[in-house]
Write a protein that binds this DNA or RNA. Structure first.
Lengths: 265, 265
DNA sequence: CGGACCGCTTCCGTCTAACGGAAGCCATGC
DNA sequence: GCATGGCTTCCGTTAGACGGAAGCGGTCCG
């Protein structure tokens, strides 16, 4: 064979699932085959198995999308589930007071992974989504996570290219370092239209039993609204309660914090 | 071979994922092999592939659990995602007024599938979870879905055994039919400690463009609190707004409504 | 209206990698 | 110290995964 190019049937099937992103939530068979670099016939066979089980479903345009069954199974994942169960009631309390977007995020690799989000009709529409990732240097929760991470991690992060999203995004490593130092000192992070024009944010760290950064909690508001610092006391209070609950429930630190550091980069 | 007993490698790997439930969110290798009726060596090989990709992860007890990556991928599923995006802001409005548990559910097969849930510290703790299923005859949202379903579906449902959860659960087909008739007439469902002692609920239907039942919206409160009917006007108002939004956004009816009926059962 | 095109589906001969029994390993506990 | 239970590794067999190619069925355009 020129066949069997390295990958097992199972890992190829999983690669097909991994081809879906929030930017491409539906894909045709040909797109799937191209993205996963596998022959059309192979993709066809694997996709049929995935569809039969319910991992994929076909919409009316004959495009494939992630199936509801996979949504159900994914929600069983203990790590995000426990964090959500603990954080969401406290986030509700914050929402009630602010009526703004409330975020709870962890670090995963070099990105901010949004674990929970509350929003409503009075909140400014924003791009964050539960289960999605955004950079650490351009988001409130991301900067809070980054500022309280280890010096080594900050060094690594600042050494990588910093993507620009708006004219306010901090893309200079030195400026980011200074900003993180300020964040550490005052105990909360601020952003001002650094991810999206029109929205700004404030966030505080959530520490685990060892005093290390475990997550962060933040608010995103429309940039014309009044000063963000008024949210800091409530954010700090709720973050402390979440931290206490996480420790009480032996909610392990997010695996990404432990496993992905050795390699560097 | 006595090997290769019918299942492809891909479907076997998926079966391993399907072995996890909310009652058993972590499983050992042996438990996985037993539940999926496959040799230990086979389960071991497949599980290794699933773990390598991130579909499964191992916790500190050497038990397997659904991985965070699968949680992320599952959240891309368009059907629940769109419904949640539309319903959640309206559910927030209901939460603000009531401070009680708010549910949004669809029918899937013969069960109620919880698509979204809001809760807070003042709300009574309940067993419902996003992505989980509960019966239709013992829950508020379930009874609302069932009452406005087709006569054929109601017949089928009532012909099946009705599980009892508390002494208040309606397990007599005739009584359930009468209850559903009352629900249809007055336009909302009620439950009184039928799923769990101590909590009762009220729910209203959400209709699609064709006037057919698409989802339901409900509140669950502690049973000693005052009358549930006070929530009905707000529930109806928000249900109407959700229906309008779903139609405007061409949010297709939940696939289960279309695909799973032919068989009967 | 005809034909080129594009994407999906089916077929089938090749041969690899999935299969699983069995042996080995490593805790834990009596 | 030995039994137990669960996990890991090994390896010969062969089922089933593989993918090129042909067929099918739309749509677009001249």
């Amino acid at each position: 064979m020129t066949k069997g190019n390295g990958r097992s049937a199972t890992s190829r099937a999983l690669d097909l699932l991994g081809a879906f992103t929030i930017e491409h939530p539906t894909l045709t068979l040909t797109e799937l085959a191209t993205r996963c670099a596998m022959p059309l016939a192979t993709a066809h066979r694997l996709v049929a198995a995935l569809e039969a089980w319910g991992a994929l479903e076909r919409n009316t345009d004959n495009r494939y999308q992630i199936g509801t069954r996979l949504w159900e199974i994914g929600l069983l994942s203990p790590v995000p589930r426990r964090m959500r169960e603990i954080a969401l009631p406290f986030m509700q309390d914050l929402y009630e007071k602010s009526k703004e977007n409330i975020h709870f995020a962890v670090r995963d690799g070099h990105e901010t992974l949004y674990i929970a989000k509350l929003t409503g009709h009075q909140a400014v529409p924003i791009i964050s989504r539960e289960g999605n990732r955004l950079p650490m240097h351009s988001t409130g929760v991301g900067k809070a996570l980054l500022a309280f991470s280890s010096k080594e991690f900050i060094d690594t992060y600042c050494a990588r290219p910093l993507a620009r999203y708006t004219r306010h995004t901090i893309v200079e490593p030195g400026r980011l370092r200074r900003e993180l130092a300020v964040t550490r000192e005052r105990g909360y992070s601020l952003t001002n239209e650094e991810m999206t024009l029109g929205s700004c944010s404030v966030a505080v760290p959530v520490f685990d039993a060892r005093g290390e950064i475990a997550a962060s909690l933040g608010v995103v508001v429309h940039s014309v609204r009044d000063n963000l610092t008024k949210y800091v006391p409530d954010l700090k209070a709720e973050a402390a309660k979440i931290a206490k609950m996480m420790i009480a429930h032996h909610c392990d630190p997010y695996p990404g914090f432990v496993h992905d550091l050795p390699q560097g980069v």
